[in-house]
Amino acid sequence: MKNSVNVLLVCGYGVGSSAMLETVTAKALKERNIEANLDHTSAGELGGYVSWADIIAVNKKLMDMVDVDDLKNKNKHVIEVINMMDGQDIGNKIQDIVETSYKNAIKE
């Protein structure tokens, strides 16, 4: 079993907003004692990261650009990010997945 989880944060261009999202998510996961590797990208470049990612967090406005069914068929967890500044909501969504699928990523 994995001792950490790979979280990919997806926004429109993969630069400013997803980098900011990465920062608030890292803080939320640290508070929850979740060992995670984070990276960010644009929706257009998502395909290059799919094999690496366990959890893919996608901005709500971009969900129609992402083939969620295909990602789920590849055993990827997809969460919708409604407010990119709400690290607590994002952290809660990731924590729910980690508690059921990646328990070893929670540090004691």
Rank of each mutant, 00 (worst) to 15 (best):
M1V: 11
K2I: 07
N3E: 02
V5H: 00
V7I: 08
L8I: 08
C11M: 02
Y13R: 11
Y13Q: 09
G14M: 04
V15F: 11
S18I: 04
A19K: 11
M20E: 06
L21T: 07
E22W: 04
V24D: 06
T25A: 03
A28W: 01
K30T: 12
K30Y: 10
K30M: 11
E31G: 07
E31C: 09
E31K: 15
E31R: 14
R32L: 11
N33C: 07
A36T: 03
N37H: 13
D39L: 05
H40F: 11
T41D: 04
T41K: 12
S42H: 01
S42V: 02
S42N: 01
A43I: 07
G47L: 06
G47I: 06
S51A: 15
S51G: 04
D54L: 07
I55S: 04
I55G: 02
A57M: 10
V58N: 03
N59Y: 03
N59H: 12
N59D: 13
N59A: 15
K61H: 14
L62H: 13
M63P: 08
D64Y: 15
M65K: 15
M65Q: 14
M65Y: 14
D67R: 09
V68M: 08
D69H: 12
D70H: 12
L71A: 08
L71W: 09
K72V: 14
N73H: 13
N73W: 07
K76A: 11
V81R: 07
I82F: 15
G87D: 07
G87S: 08
I90T: 00
I90F: 01
G91D: 03
G91K: 02
I97F: 07
E99A: 10
T100V: 13
S101W: 05
Y102K: 08
N104A: 11
A105I: 01
I106L: 07
I106N: 00
E108T: 09
